[in-house]
Design a protein around this nucleic acid. Structure first.
Lengths: 287, 287
DNA sequence: TCGAGTTCTTCTCACATTGAGTAATTCTCT
DNA sequence: AGAGAATTACTCAATGTGAGAAGAACTCGA
């Protein structure tokens, strides 16, 4: 090790404040279903940099006063209008990953700890204190080159962006540009969400307390952007132990377009789905 | 939002330095195989707090000068003696997660971005500048209540610690105590490693350029702590597209205890295993 | 009110994958 | 040379999946 590095480390071990500071923020990729489509919570920035641009909700972690998860829950509550008593307890919140390229914020070195949230359909967002607006935006408008099968009959061969930390210029022909590296964080969050519902029962976090198998299937179809075989999905959900349990009840109406009244279920006690409920046709993405 | 919070946020948006600082560090859970057993790289702390205790290698991120991944690679290189030219390029390094409970470091609020590394068998570790020692320690000594099937004939019904952020007192009857919350980070890293080799070909990162199917099976057995059916494993590895590709060569010797010379393979071009190579008997851990 | 169309739920069948066991062959060690 | 073990390739049964079909229940419009 070079002498300069060694001295840096010596100082750091005793007084980290001798260094230039690094700011720590949390950002939240909050997903929900509205009218059958996947939406993400965004805020419009009210101050530079990126003033006027859409961004993920987030903010600085309060030093010495909160953990990362608490900070994320606080930021999410500020934009959704929910608090712990209100219904944030029904929201799934997990850590997604941290983003710390030195140049990702023009002001200073900022490390952002991104989180991922799954929420049932919530009321319209309200802007927090430092945002000009907050809204649920359909992810279809934000993801270039990605369309749900069901919503777009054109075949789409180009596939999705592969890894994390992508995001070169000129790859976003439609939808608003996101501030900072938030487009990459959103892409990572969507990747994680699409994987997570394969191995966990968290798709139920997008629904209310009671739901039908068809509503659960609609969650998978919206998140994956693929249509699923209704009969096979039904068989699979009921065969995985602990995924759902029957309430004994029945929906009060049939579907809008007809059909019998479906039975109602609630989330079961499984934390992992075994065997998993895998996405169809994943061979292409394997290499 | 309370007025005080609002003012905090206003200030933070323009000058984060007005806050108490949060330090950002990286820690690395570096895993390797030595003599058929899974080992993790630890350093012995040379300064308080936790002076003399074992800890994960890590250190402060250099503000404005490096990304999180670069910082983790640097810290790993300092303890392993490898650099980019040397062989660190053959090490798999990924982000594991961030840990930011305010009280996790008694000195100040420190957010640590943990990373996970898979390395082929490396030479003995050397202590970095601020460590009193560095060594590869068998994880069997560090994980209470967990023993490989193959190494321990006693049945073990109690199962592993379930979630992250565990680590209450009195649960570690053997092995050294780790500093800070590093026991929890290590547990999360082992969880991640055990999952990761199910869905990715990263088990090959523990091996040299060329390897036999049996050596690959030994990796799975060491990481999972379970014995696998040799015939089924062989069939599975060769049937998953892109997992391994034949070199055409053959091992120069048979195994130490006899048997024919095995054929040699190298890692294929797949980034995901499809279908996955799932751990046996996971039903217990599902709820 | 009736009929068309849709949905919910359950089957059936073909096919792929897995777990368990067997066996031929080749090598090391004593 | 013989015992023991590893490599590799089989077989067979059990399980899970994709695709399709079908009956019953329901909504909507004629």
């Amino acid at each position: 090790m070079a002498p300069q590095q060694e001295e840096d480390r010596f100082l750091a071990a005793y007084d980290p404040r001798a260094f230039d500071p690094i700011a720590v923020t949390v950002d939240v990729v909050a997903l929900t279903l509205r009218e059958g489509a996947l939406h993400v919570l965004l805020v419009r920035r009210g101050a530079p940099p990126f003033e006027g641009a859409w961004a993920l909700p987030g903010g600085f972690v309060r030093a010495g006063r909160e953990s990362l998860g608490e900070a994320a829950a606080r930021e999410l509550a500020e934009e959704t209008g929910l608090d712990a008593a209100d219904g944030l307890g029904r929201v799934h919140l997990e850590q997604l990953g941290s983003y710390g390229r030195p140049e990702r914020d023009p002001r200073m070195h900022v490390v952002s700890v991104a989180h991922l949230a799954f929420a049932p359909d919530l009321p319209d967002a309200r802007a927090g204190s430092d945002a000009a607006a907050a809204a649920w935006i359909s992810v279809v408008e934000l993801e270039p080159g990605w369309q749900p099968d069901a919503a777009d009959p054109r075949p789409n061969e180009q596939g999705r962006r592969s890894g994390a930390h992508g995001g070169g210029p000129g790859r976003r022909p439609e939808g608003p540009e996101l501030a900072f590296d938030h487009a990459g964080i959103l892409a990572d969050g969507l990747d994680r969400a699409r994987s997570k519902i394969e191995y966990t029962p968290l798709a139920t976090a997008f629904l209310g307390e009671e739901f039908t198998i068809s509503e659960l299937r609609a969650v998978y179809e919206a998140v994956w952007g693929a249509t699923l075989h209704a009969g096979n999905f039904h068989r699979k959900v009921l065969s995985v132990p602990g995924f759902v349990e029957s309430t004994g009840g029945t929906a009060t109406h049939g579907s809008v377009r007809g059909g019998p009244r479906a039975r109602l279920y609630r989330a079961g006690d499984a934390r992992l789905l075994h065997p998993a409920l895998l996405r169809p046709d994943r061979e292409e993405t394997v290499r």
